[in-house]
Design a protein around this nucleic acid. Structure first.
Lengths: 235, 235
DNA sequence: CGGTAGATTGAATAGTATCAAAATCAGTGG
DNA sequence: CCACTGATTTTGATACTATTCAATCTACCG
């Protein structure tokens, strides 16, 4: 089967994805052939917690919100998934359920594989498994960091850290400073840091009056990163 | 190379370990041949955070304490590792550093492989990688659970959950109830739940006066699990 | 130009941390 | 066997952070 121009473009798209590093073009072609492309409008639910994990995704562009809802009804925002990252890794193993909810924040495209297809690919190309392990190690590290912050830091400190992470992940330089390039409500920040939207609001208003940030409806711009870093590091 | 009686016993010891499920005896023999056995006295430091990850372990018996110390000097107790579980999974990848501290709580035996040896084994037996992935998925789930508890639950609730988990992991039936079968101070419980030893002490004394638990110096017995479960579930 | 989701603000309160001090317990060695 | 030592635990008083609830305000959308 000869590779067409369109195929080549698709294969190129797979190259920068961390999950597929170290694989040759033949492997990438095979991997791509098994994938289906999904286009997701903002607020589309990709999967829900406790449902059978049947599809494994890699996000091509856009942004996905990972949440978990507790028995008491609290929502915790666990992370955002960005371009190039995998999504629904549980679906790489058979017979699992998704532990979380995934929802597109903005217009998002993702490649999708069935559990069966990804299982076969991993058996054929163990390098994918090795890469997955590496990514899981990263994720474990991030989660441990979150646990530690939640266990030892004050709310203000946690909000500062969350914002600094957000501008790392989705920061866009503007004339004034760095803007978080996605809709982000006070409620989102509260779910991200384990507090209430009221406390987030008060904190942001204070920072705004100090000239550290500029806030708007679902929008946030960091004007002076350094004092924020100081707060994140515990004054 | 014929397998001796002693070798056979060692290979049997590897069989129940989740990391090695699905491997045949020949593979297990090879795996065992590469391992070194470590015996660790209580309080022995196995590795420290930020040091190069050079050794991958599987705990045969005993118990290991995983902690992380923050820049501000707070210690967070992330988990206990029990018999059959892997330890230092970061060492499966090359060029990583341990993200945490590991210390034997009681007399402990563990098998150890060098990064190089475990890398070779994983290349030769991809099943080990698949098993590792499964264990990492478990670990990610547990950490997410911890984050959610820290983000949404009150201290009392978190302490109840921690204790219930401990009697799952290290519970020993006695005439009165179930005892946590390892030394466990108020400080440990505080580091496990993100609070202070004072609050843990007050909580336990209250529960003791209600007849739910019986506490002693580094010792804890659950007399009535059901009310504790009710507290863990938020009354 | 209303309607509505998002954001702010105030007041009251609850939950925990913090600090200081005292009490208890397990060993240890005289 | 007992007093001594150090670690662990308990308890009290106080300060403070953050939540909760209610009310109001604001920006954006159709």
């Amino acid at each position: 089967m000869p590779t067409t121009v369109a195929d080549r473009a698709h294969i190129e798209a797979l190259k920068p994805i961390e999950l597929f590093t170290g694989l040759d073009e033949k492997a990438l072609a095979r991997i791509h052939a098994d994938a289906r492309l999904w286009a997701l409008r903002p607020s589309t639910v990709i999967f829900r917690q406790r449902r059978p994990a049947q599809t494994f995704y890699v996000v091509l562009d856009g942004r996905v919100r990972i949440t978990e809802i507790t028995a008491e009804g609290h929502t915790v925002l666990l992370r955002f998934i960005e371009a190039g990252q995998m999504l629904g890794a549980m679906a790489a193993l058979e017979g699992m359920t998704y532990p979380v909810n995934a929802e597109a924040v903005v217009q998002t495209r993702a490649l999708a594989w069935s559990t069966r297809a990804m299982g076969t690919l991993m058996d054929r190309y163990p390098r994918i498994m090795k890469n997955t392990m590496g990514l899981m190690v990263q994720r474990i590290g991030e989660l441990q960091q979150r646990c530690i912050e939640l266990a030892t830091q004050r709310v203000e400190q946690r909000i500062a850290r969350a914002i600094l992470r957000l501008i790392q992940q989705a920061g866009q330089r503007t004339a004034e400073g760095v803007t978080v390039n996605m809709p982000l409500s006070r409620q989102d920040l509260a779910e991200l840091t384990g507090t209430t939207l009221y406390t987030v609001s008060r904190t942001l208003t204070r920072w705004q009056s100090q000239g550290l940030v500029k806030t708007g409806r679902q929008r946030l711009t960091v004007l002076k990163p350094h004092p924020l870093v100081a707060i994140a590091d515990g004054l």
